[in-house]
Simulated assay, not measured.
Amino acid sequence: MKNIIVYILLLTSITSSAQNDAAEDTITKPAITAIGKPDGEKTEMKIGKEGGSFTSSDGKIRLIIPEGTVTKKTTFSIQPTKNLAPNGNGKAYQMEPSGINFNKSLQLVFYYSDDETGGNSPLLMGMAMQDDNGKWFSLKKAVLDTLAKTLTADIHHFSAYVNFSKAKISPASARVKVNGSLRLKIVGAFMDDTDEDAELGPLRIEYPNMNWSVNGIPKGNSSTGIISASQSGSAIFQAPAQIPQQNPVAVTVEQQFQSAFSR
Score class of each variant (00 low, 15 high):
L10P: 02
S13W: 05
N20I: 13
A22S: 11
E24M: 00
T26P: 00
K37W: 01
D39E: 13
E41V: 09
K46E: 14
K49H: 04
E50I: 09
S53V: 07
D58L: 02
L63A: 12
P66R: 02
G68Y: 09
G68D: 14
V70K: 04
K72F: 01
T75H: 01
T75E: 07
Q79D: 09
A85C: 13
P97Q: 08
P97G: 05
F102I: 03
S105F: 15
L106E: 09
G119Y: 06
G126W: 02
Q130P: 06
D131L: 13
D131Y: 06
D132N: 03
W136R: 06
D145T: 02
L147K: 07
T152M: 07
I155T: 08
I155C: 08
F158T: 00
Y161S: 07
V162K: 00
F164L: 11
S173Q: 13
S173T: 11
R175F: 14
V178N: 14
G180T: 11
M191T: 11
M191C: 03
M191H: 03
D192M: 09
A198H: 12
V214P: 04
N215H: 03
I217A: 04
T224W: 03
I226N: 12
S228G: 11
Q231L: 13
G233I: 05
I236E: 05
I236A: 04
A239Y: 04
Q245L: 10
Q246L: 14
N247Q: 15
F257V: 11
S259I: 08
F261P: 04
